[in-house]
């Protein structure tokens, strides 16, 4: 579904603070599978997620989404792909403070022209699914870590994306909530969503629902683990 060829990303190129974040990544992400990017801080996981999620462009190399080459597309097309294809769960959930849970969940649908009533119904449906419909009109500041996590997942699913991207989603959560998060991801995978998570949490990459683990370090892929190959004895 997603293919990367020789992708490099350099921040502040040509300046004294130049940083090479990715060094020639070649990778394929399969549809309806759960892939985890594993590695220490600074290994390039978040940058790789941003490139796949059309939030930034590679310095060189190419990225394809369902046979469509993304790297040469103008900003406007990338935004459209981002809003229609990807749902994001950020490291600190990045919910917008001062507004209600319901408004936060509906944010991705503001720019797709969904009528207000339908927008709210869809958000309530998702909040209900994650058992937080009772908090719909509460401001996000008053949510617990687990509740904020579920709101972030509901928001990521608002536009019914094909791909879910989560960046260190369990970094702020205890073990129970981390397991709950992975249980939700397993459900979404079962529904046919492609899931991509960056995490160095063993509760994430060690979860039985994970199909593939991509181990990264210093902007390169060290190792690829595939459950299908593992069950067949390979790694």
């Amino acid at each position: 579904m997603i293919k990367l060829a020789e992708v490099r990303k350099i921040f502040n190129q040509g300046r004294p603070n130049e940083t090479v974040a990715l060094r020639g990544i070649n990778l394929e992400i399969q549809e309806a599978k759960l892939t985890v990017l594993k590695g220490p801080s600074g290994s390039g996981k978040t940058t790789l997620l941003s490139l796949i999620g059309c939030m930034t462009r590679p310095t060189s190399g190419r990225i394809w989404l369902c046979e469509r080459e993304l790297t040469s597309l103008p900003e406007k097309f990338l935004t459209t792909i981002r809003k229609e294809t990807f749902g994001f769960v950020f490291q600190q959930f990045n919910l917008i403070g001062g507004i209600s849970v319901l408004e936060n969940v509906t944010l991705p649908a503001y720019t797709i022209g969904m009528p207000r009533k339908q927008r709210r119904e869809r958000a309530m449906e998702l909040l209900d699914r994650f058992s937080i419909a009772n908090k719909a009109h509460v401001k996000v500041e008053s949510l617990s870590g687990g509740e904020a996590q579920r709101v972030a997942i509901a928001r990521a699913l608002m536009n019914d994306p094909k791909v879910m991207i989560a960046d260190e989603p369990t970094a702020q959560l205890d073990s129970a909530l981390s397991k709950e998060f992975m249980a939700i991801m397993a459900q979404l995978k079962a529904e046919g969503k492609t899931i991509l998570i960056a995490s160095h949490d063993p509760l994430v990459w060690g979860s039985p629902c994970v199909d593939r683990v991509v181990e990264m370090r210093d902007g390169t892929i060290l190792m690829l683990w595939d459950s299908a190959l593992a069950s067949g004895g390979g790694s």
Binding site: T79, K83, T111, N159
Partner: peptide, 19 residues
């Protein structure tokens, strides 16, 4: 930083620069 981050979040969620 709060407003800058908010704009970043909106863009990440699919809002266009013009929007």
């Amino acid at each position: 930083p709060e407003e800058t981050q908010e704009i970043g979040v909106l863009k990440a969620l699919g809002w266009d620069t013009s929007e």
